[in-house]
Structures are given as C-alpha cells and as structure tokens.
C-alpha cells in the first residue's frame, strides 16, 4: 500500500478542492493508494507547497509555478496567450504541447507535472469607493495603486498597463483593500472576486491571462512508484482534468454571477480596449519572455494567440 500527501492552498469553493475530491473518489478504496488530504494551505501557501514538492516532503500538490526557483516558470503567467475558454482548452487542455514544455523546466527542479489544471481568466477588481473604471489602458491606469502578486512579470505587466503596481502577498490583499492601501487588485479570478465582494465595487474582465495550475508530483517519489500505481494515478488524473475544464468554466460563470448579485459591477472591455491592452503586452512582456524561454516556445504561443 502507498500512502501519500496531497495538498493545496485554496478553500473549498476553489476548483482545486473539487478536483482533489473527485481524484480521491475515483481512485477508490481498493486501489491500495491512500491519500492524506491537506486542503486550504494548512501545510503552507502555494509557493511553499511548490517547494515542499521539490523536496519530496509533499509528494503531490496542486499549485502554481514558483518562478523564484526558475524564472522560466513566469511563462505560466504570460499575458494574452488566449482570451476565451475554447482557445484556452486548445492551448492548455489535455494533449496540448504545454505540459511537455513545462515539464522540461520542472524536471530541472526535481518536479514532474502530471497535468495542467485550468482555473480561470484574471480580472482587475476595484475597491469600494474608488469610483474609477480603468478600461482604456494605459491612460486610465494612471494614479491607480493596484495590488499584484510578488512575481516580477506581474509587477512589470501592470506598470506597462499604466498602473502603479504594489506587490502584496495573497494573505494580506483583503486588509490592503479594506484599509485603502491599494485601490485595486489584479490577478483576481471569479471565485476570489466573490470571496472579497464586501470590499469591491467593480470587476473588469481584462482577461489579461489565463490561469493554469500544475498538478505536481515530486519526481523522485514518482519515479520510485510502482509502475501500476503511477499508471493508475495518471489515468485518474487525466480523467479528472478532462472533466475539470467544463467545471472550471461553470464555476467562473457561477461566481461571477454571484458576485454581481452581491452588488459587484461586472465590466467587459470593448474590442478596441482589449486590442489596445493586448498590443501593450505583446510589445513589452513577450519579448522579455522570449529572452527567457527562447524563440521556439514563443513561436508556438504566437500561433496559439493568433498573432502570427
């Protein structure tokens, strides 16, 4: 029998939780594989879990790419690769090239991804009482202090989009918005917008990136696993991820509707506004990324984004 920890850093509303539950259920009781489930970050936040999987302390985790170990992982935050669910599934979905591209990087860190988990598109949300709706970028961003995650690509993106970017850890975003330390937050998925609805007045669907997470396993642990166990885990994971695409999209719509019902104003960018924002990202962020990961990978992504 094999017993292993599966951990992630998000709450029960999040797609990570439903994926974990469905994984454990499908794995069944008689597989000889026993999951020790640790949700909601009780073993550490997402960067810490990434690291713990590298060290093999947490053999399996659902988490994002911590680019402080390898800057190439910023690729998973790259802006405007896709802007609708259909394209997202083509680029990141089962059978796509992306998993292999990421695994080339992850293997250097003693990690292996058994799948890519779709989360949601990112939005910009505005704190209650600010009264601004920055849709024409970069002009409207001027003078707006926006929270970004503490990764370089996020700081650069929102600086390029005209905002005043302030990196704040996820655990302190709510207080920062409530106290008015920042006027806005970036990288907000629908579930997160809904969770912070009390302090928000507007959600702008900038869709500036499509969030995918890694289904990570420690490479040493994975390589030592009995072949049939690994095969069983892989096939169940594939099955769960296939189903999760529909679920992620449904969750996105559901929580956006719930946020709207709770009084958050939902705003779409017009085609012209979206094109202007995209142009900025393609001119600033993409060349920088090309320096990190090389022209081959970026070529594939340009095709995917329809800019070549």
């Amino acid at each position: 029998d094999e017993s292993f920890i599966l951990a992630h850093g998000m709450n029960t509303d999040h797609v990570f939780h439903s994926i974990s539950e469905s994984f454990m259920e499908k794995l069944g009781d008689d597989s000889g594989l026993e999951v020790d489930y640790h949700p909601a970050g009780d073993l550490g936040d997402w960067t810490s879990l990434f690291e713990q999987s590298m060290q093999g302390v947490v053999p399996m985790s659902l988490t994002w790419g911590a680019s402080d170990f390898d800057q190439r992982l910023d690729l998973s935050w790259l802006g405007y690769v896709v802007s609708n669910w259909e394209d997202a599934k083509k680029v990141y979905g089962p059978g796509s090239d992306m998993l292999g591209i990421y695994n080339d990087i992850l293997h250097d860190l003693d990690l292996h991804a058994i799948g890519l988990i779709p989360t949601d598109f990112g939005s910009v949300v505005i704190r209650k009482g600010v009264g601004k709706v920055p849709t024409t970028l970069p002009a409207d961003g001027s003078g707006i202090k926006i929270r970004v995650p503490g990764v370089a690509i996020a700081v650069d993106r929102f600086t390029n989009l005209g905002f005043s970017a302030v990196p704040i850890p996820l655990s302190e975003v709510y207080t920062a918005l409530q106290l008015g330390t920042v006027d806005a937050r970036s990288f907000s998925t629908a579930v997160e917008t809904y969770n912070m609805r009390d302090v928000l007045e507007t959600n702008i669907l900038t869709n500036d990136y499509f969030e995918t997470a890694f289904w990570l396993v420690s490479k040493d642990w994975w390589d030592d696993l009995a072949e049939e166990d690994a095969a069983k885990i892989q096939s169940v994971a594939d099955e769960v991820i296939e189903a999760s695409w529909e679920e992620a999209e449904a969750k996105s719509n559901e929580f956006l509707a719930k946020a709207e019902e709770a009084g958050v104003n939902i705003v779409n960018l017009s085609d012209a506004e979206m094109e202007a924002a995209k142009a900025i990202i393609y001119e600033t962020e993409w060349p920088e990324m090309e320096k990190l990961v090389g022209p081959e990978i970026m070529g594939k992504l340009r095709v995917a984004a329809g800019i070549e």
Partner: peptide, 12 residues
C-alpha cells in the same frame, strides 16, 4: 479573514 475566506463566507 483567513477563516472567512477558507470557509467561503463574507469577511465583512
């Protein structure tokens, strides 16, 4: 804040 967000409740 941690409790409310983990439990999916309104922080306010």
């Amino acid at each position: 804040i941690v409790f409310a967000i983990t439990g999916g409740l309104s922080v306010g």
